[in-house]
Nucleic acid binder design. Structure first.
Lengths: 159, 159
DNA sequence: GAATTATCGTGCGTGTACGCACGTTATTTT
DNA sequence: AAAATAACGTGCGTACACGCACGATAATTC
């Protein structure tokens, strides 16, 4: 049989892509991209982060985050200051206008969050979040010294 | 309480990003990107697709798919021919080498699929796929060119 | 105190995601 | 048949994702 295991990656991709597209439309009307919203949301939950810490939480890549911050800084939505103790790092925070904008964006995004779960029962939502979290943790686990090998030794098919 | 509803988008994003990163590493060792693998996998399940149909199934965007096809065609992994009946369309199919490459990629990706579900029960995997599918369908709903307001009185969440 | 190592940010290159406009060809309408 | 409309592919522009290499600074080691 075609195990559901094989379908999981596609199902995950499809769901995320659908969310991303929807978000792009809604947030685009507000002048920001879907990923910029994620960045602002992450900042709103923990100000004065370094760029690296910000990237770690999104999750995203430091160099990607930097490019986004340049754009957001130009619009005055975020502020970047030198770190108080580490002079090579920079702290990032929402500007007052950024905070205002984020509240506006959160409201604008509410219909999306509502629509995601409109066909699900409340307990199903919780189950989904739990399962997604498990999968993410499992994938993010270090697998260098093959701690949890699956079936066969991952034959390294190097170039 | 912090509604799980608010956490669902982030959980979905985190899981997908983790999958994407992992895939990028594994498939990158094989000389293709994670998304190129998705394209090849989609082709392997239905040859002689038009570019648009291919994009619809991935799912992705037609112009994005085109750019990917240009690269894959240069490597000889896919073939593009004129459509037998529709002269504005092009059919896309795996080349013999593309088929071989895909089998190789599928094997290389097996550890990822295994790792995704290694912390889940079999029935949990099925549940997850079902819930993700529901969410995706829900998000993709009511976006068609027709079937506007005449069908259902879905409460329009005002801005 | 000096050298090594690790970390932060930056800049660059490639691939992906998508909207939009354009030309071409099919399909439908008049 | 002629005209309007729709669908397919292409090209362009912007933003993301990420790896990698670089310079600068911090932390560690000798």
């Amino acid at each position: 049989m075609t195990s559901t295991r094989s379908e999981l990656p596609l199902a995950l991709r499809s769901a995320y892509m659908a969310l991303h597209r929807r978000s792009e439309v809604v947030f685009g009307e507000q002048g920001v991209t879907a990923d910029q919203f994620v960045l602002l949301a992450t900042l709103s939950r923990g100000q004065a982060l370094t760029q690296r810490e910000l990237a770690r939480r999104m999750p995203s890549d430091p160099s990607t985050v930097r490019a986004m911050l340049v754009l957001l800084e130009q619009r005055g939505l975020v502020q970047r200051d030198v770190h108080p103790t580490d002079s090579r790092a920079r702290t990032v925070a929402l500007s007052p206008e950024g905070k205002r904008k984020f509240r506006q964006l959160w409201t604008a995004g509410d219909p999306i969050r509502a629509q995601m779960v409109e066909t699900l029962e409340p307990d199903e939502v919780e189950t989904l979040v739990n399962l997604l979290t498990k999968v993410a943790q499992s994938l993010n686990l270090e697998r260098g010294p093959n701690g949890g090998e699956s079936s066969e030794p991952t034959e390294k098919v190097a170039t």
